[in-house]
Design a protein around this nucleic acid. Structure first.
Lengths: 103, 103
DNA sequence: TATGACTTGACGTTATTTGTCAAATATAAT
DNA sequence: ATTATATTTGACAAATAACGTCAAGTCATA
């Protein structure tokens, strides 16, 4: 399987590759540098709006970044749960079921 | 696929089958009747502790009920997301990856 | 040491969650 | 119909978590 990067790592790598400073990107997002720093180190979660802006600013594929972001959000919900893996599978089944039943 | 009941429906059906009143079960959970009513109608989410207590009170399999509860929590996170299905799959992959790498 | 980039933690504000309460609405028996 | 009991509804309050600012701290480098 391909390596597994956090959203924060993806953001930091791409920002550095583009030679942008935390300060600059944070300004574009209209938040304090401290928050962006924390987002990149996975100490805080970005909001969906921030993710979308970041994809644009850093020229990352928006869909990929959102999927990445959402999957992290999902895993966060079950991070301390023994039954997390089972719950994920059941969630997928329900998702399929609902799709096919247009509920 | 087998039918898909909500946690609330499961709780209500079993409570009624046992002939218990909202008032009685709510008292055992130490919450107001109104909340339990809302939980059973999926208007509010139960807490994990409440789910565990409910499994005991209603003699439901605890593991099944927790899985049910967690999967609902997961789906709640992505309910308005177009990319929810993709995110779920990615979350599962990451889960597997992390397991095999004992992170 | 001086400067610029980033990090850390204390703090306040806002949003969300979780609960209470009382009134409204069933449901059923007298 | 009236009474009694069960459930539902929505307005509100309290507790908790999320989100942000700020200032002081660290780290690297000139």
């Amino acid at each position: 399987m391909k390596e597994s990067k956090t959203t924060g790592e993806i953001l930091r790598e791409k920002r550095e590759k583009k030679g942008l400073l935390l300060r600059q990107v944070a300004a574009m997002l209209d938040i304090d540098t401290a928050i962006l720093s924390k987002i990149e180190r996975s100490e805080r979660k970005a909001s969906k709006e921030q993710i979308i802006k970041l994809a644009e600013i850093l020229e990352l594929d928006e869909e990929d970044l959102i999927v990445q972001f959402l999957s992290e959000k999902i895993l966060y919900e079950i991070k301390d749960e023994e039954l997390g893996s089972k719950a994920l599978k059941v969630a997928e089944q329900k998702m399929k079921y609902n799709k096919s039943h247009k509920s």
